[in-house]
């Protein structure tokens, strides 16, 4: 939990810091660049551009925006783009950054779809796709394996993981129903766990929050 000074700093960084040099157009171009360089995911390039190259954000701020983008449903980096765009240039900035994320890649993927439709069945192309797919399956397995390393060694999170896997992966039930059934319970349990933390913070902040 943050102490008083870091809480104040965080509050300051959260307030809309309009930057006249970062216009909606600049945001559009920046996020177009980020999303077009996003081979195999855009997160890596977003951090590199926003933190390392442009220095619009500190490392910690980037992590904050990413965390926030993850809680909001949908594409994480898109949500981040919208929030950041708003911070720097208001509603126009949010629109510019959001559109930058997908407007140009839209044409790239449609181009790929056209190619797939016309050449996907050609023997050589088809063989290449089969080989690529075999590797991509391996990547999804490795990814799932790495993610489980982040689970705490407690039984309750594992039960939710296994229930989700059984319902969505093995039984192929529609995600909508599975999420509606599991998410409230999973969040409810965690809410109880964080109750102690929250009480702690309130005591320390002296009711300031």
């Amino acid at each position: 939990m943050p102490d008083d000074s870091s809480a104040a700093k965080a509050a300051a960084s959260r307030a809309a810091v309009l930057r006249p040099d970062i216009t909606a157009w600049v945001l559009y171009l920046t996020f177009t660049r980020i999303s077009l360089s996003g081979f195999g995911g855009t997160l890596f390039w977003a951090r590199r551009k926003l933190v390392d190259d442009l220095k619009w954000l500190s490392e910690a701020e980037f992590a904050e925006y990413y965390a926030l983008g993850q809680v909001i449903p949908g594409a994480n980096v898109f949500n981040m783009a919208v929030l950041l765009g708003h911070r720097f240039a208001g509603v126009r900035g949010a629109t510019g950054a959001g559109l930058g994320f997908f407007s140009m890649p839209l044409f790239v993927v449609i181009g790929a779809a056209v190619l797939y439709q016309n050449f996907g069945a050609m023997p050589l192309v088809n063989k290449a796709l089969t080989g690529m797919f075999a590797v991509v399956v391996g990547l999804t397995i490795a990814n799932a394996y790495k993610m489980t390393a982040g689970l705490p060694r407690k039984w309750r999170p594992w039960i939710f993981t296994l229930l989700t896997f059984a319902a969505v992966g093995a039984l192929r039930w529609p995600l909508v129903w599975v999420m509606l059934a599991l998410a409230p319970v999973a969040i409810g349990f965690t809410w109880r766990e964080t109750a102690a933390l929250a009480a702690d913070a309130r005591a320390r902040d002296g009711g300031a929050r």
Binding site: A10, E64, A67, M147, F165, I187
Partner: peptide, 28 residues
């Protein structure tokens, strides 16, 4: 805008196991 807010932390932490279950499902 606060990712440290209790609601945000709870949603993130509570749903992490579900998200992992989903990535296992993708692999499967």
């Amino acid at each position: 805008h606060n990712p440290e807010a209790r609601v945000a932390v709870t949603v993130r932490r509570g749903l992490a196991p579900v998200v992992i279950g989903l990535s296992m499902s993708t692999a499967w």
